[in-house]
Design a protein around this nucleic acid. Structure first.
Lengths: 137, 137
DNA sequence: ACACACATGCAACTAAGTTGCAAGTAAGAT
DNA sequence: ATCTTACTTGCAACTTAGTTGCATGTGTGT
């Protein structure tokens, strides 16, 4: 299934530019959270300025097309929001990241809307931290 | 209930110093996630060096006495690990933070240990992002 | 109260992310 | 097709977050 990022950007009333399409299709291809550094390397540092990447991920996050994730690595990671409700386990020794099946956070969101004084929940992030088998030997 | 941080530090075979006790008892008093900046202000910038605060939170996190939390504010927050399994909702417009009741992540941890190739789960973090009533007007 | 490994403070540094501004470009109007 | 204009990009300079090296200070076991 090929996502139509052009249509998605137009729907959000923002311009369709090569930078935005490059970041979106890279994240679609990789299907995992990437740092800004990895995004620049993948697109090519002659092809895009790092400031443009920062501005692009900030915009795409505000539009809800991508999601920011924090692995306690000292910098942010980003993945396609349409990957849905899946999460990660991070090894605190070697920084290895594995995937975790879907959780029931959607049900919690309903409770939050009732109780917390928030009018909308746009996203959530759930990360587990532990030690992978390789590091526990 | 007054926690005996001295005993906790000794049990972890590390030194009991004024800096460590100051950070731990501040976090116990506040009962909410604090940034390094807030920790320095609260303790007093003449009373503790900011490098010591960074080294202290890194150590206390490794010892499992405090927990690192990320609100997508551009810097880390820390709270007492003994506050247990509670989480947060963050307004993406004004950065307001509210608390959320306990989730069932402990059950998920059991599944992760079976399936993911990890031998230990030391912690997890669950943050919701949305828009608070004040910002939605 | 001694010795020594560990903790702290200071200065310098690296890494992550932001801002201002001039030049370039997407997209609607002609 | 070309024009116009507001939005986007690239570059340089900057701010903020966090780290490292080293000399001095201090907690803890003897």
């Amino acid at each position: 299934m090929q996502l139509d990022f052009t249509a998605q950007l137009r729907e959000k009333r923002t311009r369709v530019t090569p930078s935005r399409l490059a970041v979106l299709s890279l994240l679609e291809k990789e299907k995992r959270p990437l740092s800004v550094e990895k995004i620049i390397t993948a697109i090519g540092e002659d092809a895009i300025d790092y400031v443009t990447v920062y501005r692009t991920v900030t915009l795409l996050k505000e539009l809800g097309l991508i999601r920011q994730i924090d692995f306690h690595h000292g910098h942010a990671h980003y993945e396609l929001a349409s990957l849905g409700d899946h999460h990660h386990v991070v090894c605190v020794k070697c920084d290895k990241v594995a995937e975790v099946a879907r959780c029931n956070a959607k049900r919690m969101e309903q409770e939050i809307l009732k109780e917390s004084g928030f009018s909308t929940i746009t996203d959530h992030s759930l990360e587990f931290f532990g030690i992978c088998r390789n590091c526990s030997i």
